[in-house]
Design a protein around this nucleic acid. Structure first.
Length: 492
RNA sequence: GCCCCCAUCGUCUAGUGGCCCAGGACGCUACCCUUUCAAGGUAGAGAUCGCGGGUUCGAAUCCCGCUGGGGGUACCA
């Protein structure tokens, strides 16, 4: 890592400075789905922030929802994080293995009179909710069980009566000072005594998060704005727990191009999907970093090290952003061009390419890589060196599969067959001479050949490609394609 | 319904009272290069800074209202 920059950076002042000595942040996904790019961006910002301040990045799995959590999704998330290069310093911790902590904290809160048992059944609550709705009012738990004496509460619990544990919400306005979203006030009459622990003993999200953040000494909570309305609850809980709340930074949502929540409908939403589509982790990271954060000074493409040294919470914007696949594709194309060839070969994961002579493969990559934006595209482009094209572009067939094209193909093939040594410069000379003699444009000769060789009208410079393909393969494809046309020529 | 957040080119954004009749990037258009497609080069279109009121000598930047969008409102996370 580069040496830290001096304290002229804006984030070295003010509110964050107090906790800046030992930054501890966490990414806390819930294993109810694969890693969404929104989650990946949250993880990235936490990671960048930790690295920027030589802090600690903790990974914590929030699997208290037994019904929806799935073990295999955890490993999938970990794998995606690793692929992105977001290494964690502690964890993964599993909340499902930390129930003793929650139990202990809950008992303590009850003992201190900051939380209490509530014995209403789900049905009773549901009925109350219905009633409130009918009256057009927002439902808030009545707080009826606040009035229970400790003795009665203990007695009913001991008798086996079901209960949840609720936090005794203080009757005061809670102010959340968010580094990204600014100041937000929450009036006590929209906050009720929310549930900490379910009747089956499972801690609820708000509770386990705060207990863990407190226990793990989390200094900064960086997460999506969807959690902003939860934050006053967390602040109250931290106070009840006797802990200073961390600094909050809530990130705007990542939306699809239509402004709706990003999902598979928009092409892809999971990190794993982007990986499969042939995107490079550094490109995805760079792109995601810029979705909501800007280093200023018109910087766009950056290495991870540069992002780390430039990153700060105050340069994160509050507004939601749309996921622009086009820009990602551009960035990926840029990264693809810069990847060293041995690494690229490993990334391509195409063992069949080893059938090609090293020199051929090297030359082919040199020819095709500049024309591709993803690994998948490059892999497909390279396949023409392994087997003859199986399909031909319909538009190409319409334009360049007429009877005279077959004739041109045969003439060109004949001319090329005598070239020795078989170099692209020699071929080009010969082809130009041929064009001159016949009064044809070079393109009239080249396009049918291109179609014959690749099945497509778009390719690297024809003769360079032929040189890599080899005389035998090239002539075979040209002649066979000529035959195919003659059997079934496209009318004018 | 109630609560909270957001609002600069199509998109990501720079911009924190005068340097901005708004800068960069992706995308788009044209031209150059050229055997095709990319890449590259050059030029260009594209935002009355959501709307309306203030404050100020002066506002994209501060305040209020409206509109639009998003989120939350669980014994989910």
């Amino acid at each position: 890592m580069k040496p830290r920059e001096k304290s002229s950076r804006p984030d070295d002042t003010g509110i964050i400075a107090a906790a800046m000595d030992s930054v501890r942040v966490r990414f806390a996904p819930s294993p109810t789905g694969s890693l969404h790019v929104g989650g990946a961006r949250t993880a990235l910002y936490n990671w960048l922030f930790a690295r920027r301040h030589s802090g600690t990045f903790i990974l914590r799995i929030e699997d208290t929802d037994v019904e929806r959590s799935r073990k295999e999704l955890t490993s999938q998330i970990l794998e995606a994080m690793t692929w992105l290069g977001l290494s964690w310093d502690e964890g993964p911790y599993f909340q499902s293995e930390r129930y003793a902590h929650y139990q202990e904290a809950a008992n303590r809160l009850i003992d201190e009179g900051k939380a209490y048992r509530a014995f209403e059944t789900p049905e009773e609550l549901e009925a109350e909710k219905k009633r409130a709705e009918a009256e057009g009012k927002a439902f808030r738990y009545s707080g009826a069980c606040r009035a229970l004496s400790r003795e009665e509460s203990d007695r009913r619990a001991a008798a086996g009566e079901k209960f949840v544990i609720r936090l005794l919400m203080p009757e005061e306005t809670i102010v959340v000072n968010d580094v990204v979203q600014g100041r937000a006030e929450f009036s006590p009459d929209v906050l009720d005594d929310f549930v900490l622990v379910r009747s089956d003993g499972h801690p609820l999200y708000h509770f386990s998060v705060c207990v863990d953040d407190a226990a793990m000494g989390i200094t900064h909570v960086i997460r999506g704005v969807d959690h902003l309305p939860n934050t006053p609850k967390h602040v109250a809980l931290f106070r009840a727990l006797g802990v200073k709340p961390p600094v909050f930074a809530h990130l705007g949502m990542i939306l699809g191009t239509d402004g709706k929540k990003l999902s598979k409908r928009h092409g892809a939403a999971g990190v794993e999907e982007f990986r499969e589509m042939g995107f490079l982790p550094q490109a995805l990271v760079n792109f995601l970093a810029l979705l909501g954060w800007s280093p200023g000074e018109d910087r766009e493409r950056m290495t991870t090290e540069e992002m780390i040294s430039l990153f700060s919470l105050e340069r994160i914007g509050p507004s939601p952003s749309r996921f622009d696949h086009e820009k990602l594709a551009w960035m990926n194309g840029q990264s693809l061009q810069e990847t060293p060839e041995p690494e690229l070969l490993a990334l391509l994961k195409a063992p069949e390419l080893s059938a090609l002579p090293e020199e051929t493969l090297h030359a082919a990559i040199g020819l095709h890589r500049p024309r591709t934006k993803t690994l998948v595209e490059l892999r497909k482009a390279l396949s023409i060196y392994l087997e003859d094209p199986a399909e031909f572009d319909p538009a190409g067939m319409k334009k360049f599969a007429r009877r005279e094209d077959a004739a041109h193909l045969r003439t060109l093939a004949a001319r090329l067959s005598s070239i020795e040594p078989f170099t692209h410069t020699g071929m080009e000379e010969a082809a130009r001479a041929l064009a001159e003699e016949t009064g044809l444009k070079l393109g009239a000769l080249a396009q049918p050949a291109r179609l014959a060789l690749t099945g497509s009208l778009a390719s690297p410079p024809l003769f360079e490609m032929i040189e890599v393909l080899g005389k035998e393969t090239a002539l075979r494809r040209m002649l066979s394609f000529a035959g195919r046309i003659e059997a079934n020529p496209h009318p004018h």
